[in-house]
Simulated scan of single mutants.
Amino acid sequence: MKIRIAILGSGSGTNAENIIRYFQGHSTMEVALVLSNRADAYILERARMYGIPYIAFTKTDFLSEESILPLLDENRIDFLVLAGFLLQIPEALIQLYPNKIINIHPALLPKYGGKGMYGNRVHEAVVAAGEKFSGITIHYIDEHYDSGSIIFQTTCEVLPTDTPHDVAVKVHALEYQFYPQVIQETINKEFGLTPDIK
C-alpha cells in the first residue's frame, strides 16, 4: 500500500509537475490527486497530462467540511502538499491531517510571510529591502498563514543588481531541487516508514 498524496495549487503548477514526476514509480508513495480552487489553473492541465485525477472547487466548497473532507476520504488521501495554493486551510482539515499538510514559501520565514505575501510580491519585497539572501521555507500548516513549524530552509544569494525576476529564478531552482525530497523525508517521518532511495 502506498501513501497517497494530494497536491493543492492555484496557479500554473510547475512545482506540482516536478513533484508528480519525482514520485512516478516510487515504491511507497504516489501523487493520487490534484486539487485547485481555480477551474482555469494550468495545474489541472498538468495533472491531466500525467494521468492524475484532478478536481476544481470553489472557495465555498473548500471551506465547507461537508465538501472537502468527504472528497479527500473518497480518494483515500493520506498527506497534503501545498504548491502555490492561495487559500487558507480550514481548521477542520488541519485537525484531520495533523502534521500531514505541508507548504513551501518562496522566502526565509518568518520574514516576508503572511496573508498576501506570495509569488512576485515576496521577491519584490526582498529586493526592496536590500536583503543579501533569500531562499525557501518548507513548513507544516497551522491555522495562520506561513506560521507553522519549519521543516526545512535553504538560501540563495541576492546580489545588489538582482531584480525580483532574478531572485524568482534562483528561488524556483531551490524549490525544484528540494521540495520533492523534503516531502518524501517528511512522509517517512510522519508515517514511520524506512527511508528509501527512489
Rank of each mutant, 00 (worst) to 15 (best):
A47L: 15
A92I: 02
F133Y: 08
Y97R: 09
Q181I: 15
S67K: 15
D78W: 00
V81A: 11
L193V: 13
Y50I: 08
T186H: 04
Q88K: 12
E131G: 02
P180F: 11
D162A: 02
Y176T: 11
E74F: 12
R38E: 07
G84L: 05
E124M: 01
R38Q: 14
L93D: 05
I104D: 04
I89G: 07
H144D: 15
I52M: 02
G116K: 01
S67F: 11
Y54D: 14
Y112T: 07
F57I: 08
Y112L: 07
G114K: 09
I55V: 10
E175V: 08
I151W: 06
F133M: 07
F178L: 10
L69I: 01
D78C: 11
N75Q: 13
I52G: 08
F62N: 09
I77R: 01
L96N: 14
N75E: 13
I141E: 06
I20W: 13
L35W: 08
K100F: 01
A173F: 04
K198Y: 13
H165M: 06
K170P: 05
A168W: 07
G9W: 05
I77D: 00
A173G: 01
P164L: 06
M49F: 14
I136P: 13
S36T: 03
N15A: 02
Q181H: 14
D40T: 13
H26A: 12
L63A: 09
G116V: 11
Y179W: 00
Q95R: 15
D162H: 12
K198R: 15
E66P: 01
E74R: 15
Y179D: 05
S36Q: 13
G84I: 05
I187H: 06
R121H: 11
S134E: 08
V34D: 08
P180I: 13
E143M: 06
I104P: 03
S64G: 15
E190G: 05
L69T: 01
Q153V: 06
A83E: 02
Y22K: 03
